[in-house]
Amino acid sequence: MASVSVCIPVYNGARFLAETIRSVLDQTYRDFELIVLDNASTDGSGAIAQSFAERDSRVRLERNPTTLSQPDNWNRVVQLSRSPLVKVVCADDLLHPRCLEFQVTPMEADPGLALVASRRHMIDEQSRVIVPNRGLAGLTGVRTGVEVARKVVRNGSNPIGESNNVLFRREDFFAVGGWRADRTYIMDLDLWLRLLQYGEFLGLPETLAAFRIGRGTVSSDHGERIYEQQRMLLEEIGESPFFQVRGVDLAVGRLLAPAGRSRRRALYAISKIAARRNEGGDAA
């Protein structure tokens, strides 16, 4: 059994899938399996994944007979994993070559860690960096779940990041019930906080992943719903006796939440402008 399972759930992601798979296979840490779950795509996603599986024994292609919802599909890809450590990578995101090397080592060395996260770049549709070294402000080093929850609430957004820059334990994932269908727009942050009831958090200062901001993604198309669900989650955390969030934390988070929404809108706007410019250059 490999030490870590890297899972790529994909639905009609042919445009970026090969680049994403290559970023996983180029890892300096070699003891991993890569599961690509084709969610009944109608483009060439399955064929792309199959071409890699035929050349590299670490790659395993699985297919859903019908298209599942995103939470169900993401839960299934983790169910298909076999390793004690798991990373889920969106089919358009990227990993730095040393991502697994830096993240697996501390998780194996310290069974008290529930999550290891790194910083990540925000990139556009041409894989150009829009915002470098984003995330984990005030969250590097080992932190308790209480410390992380207070920081998350004060941030008013998601300072930990998306699934591609986080590594977690498979056993804990199933213990907390996996990705929640009623939290589609904040699945990652919701899961991280539930997992932190099983151990501590390690934030790495290195930038080890890249999150793509492109047109037609969940993040770009549903900004208001993301904002609403984030606010709901922050209030829920604030009421949790486990996380011991203080009134001042909630007050700061409520104040800063609109600023987080504005930053998100600005990132998507920059990405769209860059995409239009690139199309104009191609046409010329």
Rank of each mutant, 00 (worst) to 15 (best):
M1V: 14
A2P: 15
V6G: 08
V6P: 08
P9N: 01
P9K: 05
N12Y: 00
I21G: 13
R22Q: 15
V24P: 06
Q27N: 07
Q27K: 08
Q27G: 08
T28E: 13
T28M: 04
Y29W: 15
Y29A: 14
R30K: 14
F32L: 06
F32K: 05
I35N: 11
S41F: 03
S41H: 02
G46C: 03
A47C: 02
I48W: 02
A49N: 13
E54V: 14
V59W: 10
V59P: 09
V59T: 09
L61Y: 10
P65M: 05
T67F: 00
S69F: 06
Q70V: 14
P71C: 08
R76S: 10
V78R: 05
V78I: 14
Q79L: 13
R82H: 15
S83K: 13
K87D: 09
V88M: 15
C90K: 11
A91D: 05
L94A: 06
H96G: 04
P97D: 01
F102L: 12
T105C: 08
P106D: 03
P111E: 13
S118E: 00
M122N: 09
Q126H: 03
Q126F: 03
S127V: 02
I130L: 14
P132C: 01
L136Y: 01
L139G: 07
T140R: 05
G141F: 03
E147Y: 03
V148N: 06
V148W: 04
V148D: 06
R150D: 13
V153K: 07
V153C: 05
V153W: 04
G156R: 09
P159H: 09
I160M: 02
G161S: 01
E162S: 08
E162W: 05
S163M: 13
N164H: 15
N165Q: 09
R169F: 07
R170C: 03
R170H: 01
D172F: 09
D172E: 11
F173E: 12
F174G: 05
V176M: 08
W179N: 03
D182V: 08
I186M: 11
M187L: 07
L189K: 05
D190A: 09
W192F: 11
W192R: 09
L195V: 00
L195G: 00
F201L: 08
F201Y: 07
L202C: 02
L202Y: 02
P205I: 03
E206W: 10
T207M: 06
A209K: 04
A210S: 12
F211H: 13
F211K: 12
R212T: 04
R212G: 00
G216L: 10
T217M: 04
T217P: 02
T217F: 02
Y227A: 15
Y227L: 12
M232C: 08
E236V: 00
I237G: 08
I237L: 15
S240N: 02
P241A: 06
P241E: 04
F243R: 07
Q244L: 11
D249H: 04
A251S: 08
R254D: 00
L255Q: 09
L256C: 07
A257V: 01
G260P: 10
R261D: 11
S262V: 14
R264D: 07
A266H: 15
Y268A: 07
I270F: 09
K272S: 10
I273Q: 08
R277G: 01
A283V: 14
